[in-house]
């Protein structure tokens, strides 16, 4: 069902590019101090590098930590929209409503917030609300240049695990999350950060009941599952510990549901997660 708010849903007008960037407030992992979130800053960097006709930077959240947003303004943004939510409000609905009014052809954001729920679900929920596609872990975006592609589609490069890259062609407006290996964000400068304007916009938001139910604890690294191979020569063990398994996976193109499920099941058994 085509969305009424996005009339040109089929194509991106590169000459009149309209980009929205969703920016969250990050936390430094050591000091816990509010800062610009790393991948959100990279998303803004990518948006600035595209030189769009219109660039809208949006943050949804309480006013309290708003000064930390100035780090984004320091990258060269003149203004930033702050959707003011009550403490503990869920940002998804107000963001969807705001983006529906803006109708940008491209929405960029980091892959995961550094604070709050940090589930990485927000881009998917936004895309569902806007009826747009999601492309996760993007490292490069540009207009499609191959002659046989539809005008107004985009060439994307997506980061896959173990340093692999995948080229994609995407047609129509979409939400892209930015991978940490995308081009680094430019430094934030004090002068423009001080001069930039944060425009508060009042927004209605339902309370995020899931988050308020959660217990908050300081972050610590997730324990990693290590598969220690025993036996064999020292060389074998070294190889097992250091060799990358890239390119040895199984690629299924349009598998049947049964074939896909079987492959996942086999993989889980192989990793020892299922008996």
């Amino acid at each position: 069902m085509p969305d009424a708010a996005m009339p040109d849903a089929a194509m991106i007008d590169w000459a009149m590019l309209d980009v929205a960037v969703l920016l969250s407030i990050g936390r430094h992992p050591v000091s816990g101090r509010a800062r610009r979130a790393a991948t959100d800053a990279q998303a803004l960097e990518m948006a600035l590098a595209l030189r769009p006709r219109r660039l809208t930077a949006i943050h949804a959240g309480p006013v309290a930590d708003g000064e930390a947003l100035r780090a984004y303004l320091g990258m060269g943004l003149e203004r930033l929209t702050l959707l003011v939510l009550p403490e503990g409000g869920d940002p998804v609905e107000p963001l969807v409503a705001h983006l529906r009014r803006l109708a940008p052809s491209l929405i960029l954001t980091g892959r995961q917030a550094e604070d709050g729920e940090g589930s990485g679900m927000l881009p998917y929920l936004i895309a569902r609300g806007l009826d747009a596609a999601v492309v996760p872990d993007v490292v490069r975006i540009g207009p499609a240049d191959a002659p046989d592609t539809k005008p107004g589609s985009a060439n994307l490069v997506q980061a896959l695990p173990r340093g692999q890259r995948r080229a994609l062609i995407v047609t129509g407006p979409f939400v892209a999350t930015i991978h940490p290996s995308a081009p680094p964000a430019r430094p934030s400068a004090f002068g423009p950060a001080r001069r930039g304007v944060i425009e508060p916009v009042a927004a209605q938001a339902a309370a995020d009941l899931f988050l308020s139910d959660c217990e908050h604890r300081p972050w610590r690294p997730k324990p990693k599952l290590m598969r220690v191979k025993r036996g064999g020569s020292a060389l074998d063990r070294l190889k097992a510990a250091t060799e990358s398994k890239s390119g040895k996976g199984q690629l299924l193109v349009n598998p049947t549901a049964e074939a896909g499920a079987l492959a996942i099941y086999d993989s889980l058994v192989e990793q020892g997660i299922l008996p």
Partner: peptide, 10 residues
């Protein structure tokens, strides 16, 4: 360079 342009080397 640093305060206005953020042009400090990487």
């Amino acid at each position: 360079q640093t305060l206005e342009l953020g042009a400090t080397p990487a």
